[in-house]
Structure formats: structure tokens, C-alpha cells
Design a protein around this nucleic acid. Structure first.
Length: 194
DNA sequence: CGGGAGATGGGCT
DNA sequence: GCCCATCTCCCGA
């Protein structure tokens, strides 16, 4: 399988646009244990302006520093004591914006995903949520700040869904900014988190 | 199936 | 202390 890695330009434009365009793209990880990949089926945009739910909203801190760096880097953080969330930094350096990857459709390395997630898990429970997909893909805090423009962890072009199949809604799991329509997903795809 | 609650730890007030 | 961009287990229907 060959991949066409998405270039920096892809992530430089408007963050909402990037969140939408990432649907259908492929997240690929060549880890020491093996290759896993999945088609992105659900994303959320986090904006610098007027968005209190965004980690960058209250300025730069040690945790969110990567969000203020150059685009196309991984912003990974630890949440709820158990889980990691994987984001892609977007916009110009200093913007403080990102797209959260919320769900994947497993593509390659299903056995490894299953091993990481627990043998009992069914296929549709491997990557259908931000914490789950990090575990299945072998993504953790040590990937925070790493470039997504090159091996071993990168984003590749895929098949974009038709516009009529793109769903839009409020974001999940937050208290502030619930009204904003910044979540994008592929309609009727069984791997969307809800 | 759906809802409720516990697990679990780093960041911020 | 309390919050949190989550997940899993367990219970009842």
C-alpha cells in the first residue's frame, strides 16, 4: 500500500475547512509493533477566537504549547486519568487552533488494534472514540509535537465523502460552546462515536 | 439496548 | 480541590 501524505498547505487553511476535509483521509502509524491505519470518519474543530472550549483559549501553557506551534503537528494530551486525545494543529504558527480526531474506520492492522484494545473487543469498538483510537493506533503523549508530514505517524489522502454524506453537529463532551456546529462526521458510518 | 457511576491523573484556580 | 475534548462495567428492561 502506498500513501500520498498530506502536505503542510492542507493544514494551513481555515480550521473548520480542515476538519471537514479530513473526513475520508487516512491516519497511518508505523509503530515498532506494526502498522495500523484508519479512515477518519469524525472530527471536531477547536478555534482560537471566541471558543472557550478550546485548550488554547486562555493563552499558552506548558500543556497546550504545541497548539501554538507550526501546523501539521500532533497535539496529544492525557484526559480523565485514563485516556489520550489526538489532535492535528492547524492554521498559521501562533494561531492556537486544532482539529480533534474523534473516530476512525479501521483499515489496516486490525489484529494489532485488537491486541492493544483487548481481545474481547469487536471491530466496531476499536476506534469509535478519541480515547479508543489512540489506544488502537498506539498513540500516546510521546507523540505530542511530532510532525504528521512524515514517517512514522502521518496523514494520507483518501476518498472524500460526498457533501450530502457529511453530518454537522455540536461538539461532544464539553460544557462550553456546545451550541457551536463544529463537529463533522460521515453520516451512517458505523464507526462514528455516536 | 440504555443510563449511571467509578476509575484515574495532570492542569489550573 | 475541582475540572476534564473518556471509557468501561454493571445493572435493569
Amino acid at each position: 500500500m502506498t500513501y500520498q501524505i498530506l502536505n503542510e498547505r492542507f493544514f494551513l487553511c481555515d480550521t473548520v475547512e480542515v476538519a471537514r476535509k479530513l473526513l475520508g483521509a487516512v491516519l497511518v502509524h508505523f509503530s515498532p509493533e506494526g502498522l495500523t491505519s484508519g479512515i477518519i470518519v469524525e472530527t471536531e474543530a477547536y478555534l482560537s477566537r471566541d471558543d472557550p472550549a478550546c485548550h488554547a483559549a486562555r493563552g499558552k501553557t506548558k500543556r497546550n504549547a504545541v497548539m501554538f506551534g507550526p501546523p501539521a503537528r500532533a497535539y496529544v494530551y492525557f484526559i480523565y486519568g485514563n485516556h489520550y486525545c489526538f489532535n492535528v494543529v492547524t492554521g498559521r504558527e501562533g494561531a492556537g487552533e486544532a482539529v480533534l480526531i474523534r473516530a476512525l474506520e479501521p483499515l489496516e492492522g486490525l489484529d494489532l488494534m485488537q491486541k492493544r484494545r483487548g481481545e474481547r473487543q469487536k471491530k466496531n469498538n476499536l476506534t469509535s472514540g478519541p480515547g479508543k483510537l489512540c489506544q488502537a493506533m498506539g498513540i500516546s503523549i510521546r507523540h505530542n509535537g511530532s510532525s504528521l508530514l512524515e514517517y512514522p505517524l502521518f496523514l494520507a489522502a483518501g476518498t472524500a465523502p460526498e457533501d450530502s454524506l457529511i453530518g454537522v453537529s455540536g461538539r461532544i463532551g464539553i460544557n462550553q460552546g456546545q451550541d457551536k456546529q463544529l463537529r463533522f462526521f460521515i453520516r451512517k458510518n458505523p464507526f462514528v462515536s455516536r
